[in-house]
């Protein structure tokens, strides 16, 4: 990979300042960025590690629900969110593999917004708030398509605030090689209704399956899905599954998530 200057600030302010350099790029756990840099598909001149900022780490119960520091590794979320939000902890505990979960962070995953990543589905289904150094962004506004988010240049995610649903579950159907989600569905039932977010399948990244939300809000049981047509979103077609297959799997996984919730 190309060489770069490595900096590791300990405060958000210092990180923001460091990111003002031309060619600066934030590094969180690096589990996607570093392989990309090895392929020379990314070549930052300054790499700003966020893993030294203690204020961006940790899981705690707050008034907005569960607050998770953006630089908290998946393994920590899996362990520490379990008592408050088991479905989210389960999701975190099945991202990648144990070594990836030691390094990879929730903020890094959301900033990258890989169409097959797990976390975006939890954030969207939970109607979570993405907190940055500048503002608070509602989940519905945050995800803007493939690898695309509402984040502006130099903006850093500092925290994610998850409202805790009455019932929820995430069911992931693995892509057999990478173990990313071929289709992943997060179902969250709140007093005010049900949200269903789908990752892995859509050509534009994570999306809400609104027909399923309506059906499940009317009656939260597996049978509610049975007669629905698969979602209308354009689906990914690749070596591992056709768009038709993915569309069908969205239905199957949604049903299973409802069963598991």
């Amino acid at each position: 990979m190309h060489n770069f200057q490595f900096v590791k600030p300990t405060t958000v302010a210092d990180a923001v300042a460091a990111l003002e350099h031309d060619g600066a790029q934030a590094l969180s756990g690096g589990q996607t960025l570093i392989p990309t840099m090895k392929q020379r598909l990314a070549a930052p001149e300054v790499l700003v590690s966020l893993t030294g900022i203690d204020a961006m780490k940790g899981v705690c119960k707050g008034d907005g629900g569960l607050h998770i520091g953006a630089a908290t590794p998946h393994a920590v979320v899996a362990r520490e969110a379990a008592a408050y939000y088991p479905a989210l902890a389960h999701l975190a505990g099945h991202i990648g593999d144990p070594a990836v979960r030691s390094r990879g962070t929730i903020g890094g995953s959301l900033a990258n917004n890989d169409p097959s990543a797990c976390y975006p589905s939890a954030v969207l289904a939970s109607d979570a708030v993405v907190v940055t150094n500048k503002r608070q962004i509602a989940a519905d506004d945050y995800f803007q398509g493939l690898f695309s988010t509402a984040l502006q240049l130099g903006e850093i995610i500092t925290e994610i605030r998850f409202p805790i649903p009455e019932r929820a579950a995430y069911v992931k159907f693995d892509q057999p090689a990478s173990r990313f989600a071929l289709v992943g569905v997060f179902v969250a039932k709140f007093a005010g209704g049900v949200r269903v977010a789908v990752t892995g399948a859509g050509e534009e990244g994570v999306f809400r399956w609104k027909e399923a939300e309506a059906a499940l809000s009317a009656g939260f049981h597996m049978a509610a899905i049975e007669d629905l047509a698969p979602p209308k979103q354009r689906m990914i077609g690749d070596l591992h599954g056709t768009p038709e297959y993915r569309a069908q799997m969205v239905k199957v996984m949604t049903k299973r998530a409802v069963g598991a919730a």
């Binding site: 490595f6 690096g30 593999d97």
Partner: peptide
């Protein structure tokens, strides 16, 4: 970052040493 031949422990947890910078 798939094969795990490079796994070491950093501060007691497993890490893929090919996917972390020494400086970090």
């Amino acid at each position: 970052s798939q094969c795990g031949a490079c796994v070491v422990h950093v501060d007691g947890v497993p890490v893929k040493s090919c996917t972390v910078f020494a400086a970090d």
